[in-house]
Design a protein around this nucleic acid. Structure first.
Lengths: 302, 302
DNA sequence: CCCGGGTTATCGTATTTCGTGATATGCTGC
DNA sequence: GCAGCATATCACGAAATACGATAACCCGGG
């Protein structure tokens, strides 16, 4: 039978390309250099073109090699996915690694996540937090099964669905009757959940646009602490309206509407289109954002 | 070295699944049945689950087998794409199979296609016409590299870009001053390019919505023939405005505007996201629809 | 009931492929 | 020219693979 390109060939090819040498690739693959050389040569013969340029310091990819390289990675992943798919009998189990903005995790996800792990004890759920751009990168590079990020994100390889659409409001002490009172000041203290909170930048931008250039940060561990601080007049904050109903009803703090363009923020769930969707992930999505439809852009760039 | 799932294993597996028997698979793969049996067994051992249920008439897939099957096809295609990619040095060549609505091909594509084949004589361009749904299916099942269809089409596996946005107008004899004169009649003759022309259904719907239930078809081979017929008052037709400038200027026919919702029609180019994009296709797209951006829905369902 | 025609399973053997180690060869910097 | 580091080649043993023959099985029809 004629010899055809093989997954192992591409594995060897990928290692050689990545490490820039057959010796190093042989070491990584627990085999010997002659074997690596031979299989690369066979691959080149089959294809009819050299894949590497040999020189005394190792090898570098030719143009043809560069074109082949992405497929080496893709085949590896595809076989990996095939193994996962065949093992996945439909009942959620195994590892599930989700990314999220820290704020989203704290305010929105914590309850859902604990319900999820309670419902599916066989799933090893891992939550990793980061900024939107870090998370997007991690998803694109297969380090995360999916992530909650701040929308919109446009990338051909990413599938997205709307997770939450929130309307933000500025919270102040109840004595502040209108935002205009705030905008008179030159300096404003803002209270955020953590230093890396994504609402911080948003609130600063918002204030800057209204002439307030000096802001100071107050950092807290819980929403309750923020609300108490804001109620006491020590600072202002920016939070989703849905989270602050009780506090405003009790007149502890005052909520101030913002124009839609500034107030609406979409949290979208993204995942690679071509990645394997495990039952664990499917079950997760069924609970957290059941709408498979694409999220429409709501927050225009301002 | 531990034996791992292999492209050939999946090839054998796929053939067995498709043909429903190891004997038949062996025949197709030009090998013997014992070999097929053995490799299927090895695959099952590696995975740890039976992939087939054996019975006296052949074999049928188990649940695990059903989960694996799509990956068998995908790996085959991926290796195929890898071979194509490595052979494709950037200069358009090889086969390029494009689908199109017959009307689009006749009215819009013919000029561009002949320019393309003139510019890239090494490309074997094949144009296949069909209805939108046929074309979508052919693209999804890898029989077409891409197709021009009537938008919008929503499918997660398809990438789409706007090719042409046309405004349709109803053409009548110049003596007809307004469409209302038409709508008084019970029966109207409509002139179309071919029997399968997609504008036919559109025009019929449009007329039906205005109370005209009886239509008769006049079929022509060229736009000029249609225009002549319409000019002579033998029927009406529906055509893109951009194609009829001269005829209306010379007062041979009268063009009647339609409301945007009915008039605008998007022709989009679709292709599978995960399919290999050859230089031939890239060059084609560069000429025909350079906008890689997603076509926004313009024609709402009415 | 058993036999014929279909199927898959098993096994010993031949063949091919693969991995290894030793060695040859080539390049670069000193 | 030589040391050091790289790839190429080759012969050989080991492993994987394909083969052919045979066994075992099931089903439907005489």
């Amino acid at each position: 039978m004629l010899r055809l390109m093989d997954a192992r060939d591409l594995r060897i090819f990928e290692a050689v390309a990545r490490l820039g040498g057959m010796n190093r690739a042989a070491a990584e693959l627990h085999t010997v250099q002659s074997n690596v050389t031979a299989r690369v040569r066979l691959l080149e013969e089959e294809i009819g073109t050299p894949l590497f340029r040999r020189h005394s310091r190792g090898v570098t990819l030719t143009e043809a090699g560069r074109r082949l390289l992405p497929y080496a990675a893709r085949t590896q992943r595809l076989f990996e996915d095939a193994r996962r798919a065949v093992r996945d009998d439909g009942s959620p189990k195994g590892s599930l690694t989700i990314g999220s903005l820290e704020t989203t995790a704290a305010l929105r996800l914590s309850a859902q996540l604990s319900a999820y792990v309670a419902a599916y004890p066989e799933v090893d759920l891992v939550l990793r937090t980061g900024t939107s751009s870090e998370l997007v990168k991690d998803v694109l590079e297969y380090r995360l099964d999916g992530a909650f990020v701040c929308g919109p994100v446009e990338h051909a390889d990413l599938e997205q669905r709307l997770a939450f659409r929130e309307e933000l409001a500025i919270l102040t002490a109840p004595t502040v009757r209108s935002l205009d009172e705030l905008f008179g000041k030159r300096q404003v203290k803002i209270a955020v959940l953590r230093a890396g909170c994504s609402y911080r930048q948003r609130l600063e931008d918002l204030l800057t646009r209204r002439g307030i250039v000096e802001t100071r940060l107050l950092e807290f561990g819980t929403i309750e602490a923020i609300l108490a601080c804001v109620g006491a007049g020590l600072g202002v904050t920016l939070l989703p309206k849905s989270l602050i109903g009780m506090a405003t009803r009790n007149n502890h703090v005052a909520a101030h509407r913002l124009p839609k363009a500034e107030a609406l923020v979409d949290t979208i769930f993204i995942r690679r289109r071509d990645a394997f969707m495990s039952s664990a992930l499917a079950a997760f999505l069924r609970r957290v954002c059941p709408a498979p439809a694409r999220a429409e852009a709501a927050t225009q760039s301002i």
